[in-house]
Nucleic acid binder design. Structure first.
Length: 286
DNA sequence: CCTAGAACCTGCGAGC
DNA sequence: TGCTCGCAGGTTCTAG
């Protein structure tokens, strides 16, 4: 479940179902799922044992579970297809189950990391003084973070020699935005994905940020976006925002503003969806 | 330093 | 039916 709203839905589920429980033991079924944990799978499993999980946090698409009475956290990234599920102990093993965490209580559920494509994973890291896993210190605050600096973001856009969608997907400038919400925010802002950022005026940058926040909050309110069973909350349930999408996945369908057929362009090994009339291409498109 | 593009994986649906 | 191709909510490494 990749972008910010989907990850936040998962974080809330973990807060409700996993926080304050003590790990009995962990089992790593695929080494790629812990590749960020340099000391390896056995070390990862061993270090979780006996520790109580604190309240889960999130920045952008990363979330982490602090281990109480330590200065470390379990960092999680869902990649393209990762799921964190709270399942009954007796539930059948998922085909792509990669990590299982059992708890030392009688609630009867366990935490499972399931990931078809293995781009995601879990790992254990020291926290920085502000409680963030050290390996994600370079990730920017996300737009729903009260301490996100709008002015600094605008200045960063001015400084870069890049285009706006690339900038939105650059997790060191603004985190949590992925392919869906980038296209949605750009459609709302009537901006073409290939517009150079260096010419952005402050009002334009701030308006775009407003649209990013609006679309993410709207998605969050209905449990995020899912087109299939790959993107679910910790209880395996899908969100409903797919039916509210204005741009993503709408190739050939009429623009909801002006009726012009929407287009899809191959872009950076993926796709960009846009309205050719509302979102005009820049004159000089490199 | 910076930016663009490919690589990393598995599975699914479309088209032949 | 079975094959190949293109495509998928991300990040990270490499080449230029």
């Amino acid at each position: 479940m990749p972008e910010l709203p989907e990850v936040e839905v998962v974080r809330r589920g973990l807060e409700r179902w996993v926080a304050h429980r003590t790990v009995a033991d962990a089992e790593v079924l695929h080494p790629r799922a812990v590749r960020r944990h340099i000391a390896g799978a056995d070390d990862f499993a061993h270090r979780l044992k006996g520790h109580r999980i604190g309240v889960p946090s999130r920045r952008g698409k990363y979330l982490w579970l602090p281990l109480e009475d330590t200065t470390q956290s379990i960092l999680a990234h869902l990649g393209m297809s990762g799921q964190l599920l709270v399942q009954p102990r007796e539930a059948p093993t998922e085909k792509h189950l990669r990590i299982r965490v059992r708890f030392a209580d009688e609630l009867g559920t366990e935490l499972r990391f399931v990931d078809q494509r293995t781009f995601g994973g879990l790992s254990l890291h020291d926290n920085t003084p502000d409680g963030l896993p050290d390996v994600i210190a370079h990730i920017a605050r996300d737009p729903l973070d009260p301490l996100f600096d709008d002015e600094a973001f605008h200045q960063a856009l001015r400084r870069k020699r890049t285009t706006i969608k690339r900038a939105l997907l650059d997790q060191s400038l603004i985190s949590g935005v992925g392919n869906i919400y980038a296209d949605e925010a750009l459609w709302r802002a009537r901006l073409h994905y290939d517009r150079p950022t260096a010419t952005f005026t402050r009002p334009r940058s701030l308006e775009l940020l407003g649209h990013v926040r609006d679309v993410m909050n709207a998605a969050l309110a209905v449990g995020g976006t899912s087109f299939d069973s790959l993107y679910v909350n910790v209880n395996g349930e899908s969100g409903y925002f797919d039916r509210s999408l204005d741009a993503y996945g709408r190739e050939g369908l009429p623009c909801k503003r002006c009726g012009t057929p929407m287009r899809r362009r191959a872009w950076m090994n993926r796709s960009s969806y846009f309205c050719p009339k509302c979102q005009r291409a820049p004159r000089v498109s490199s």
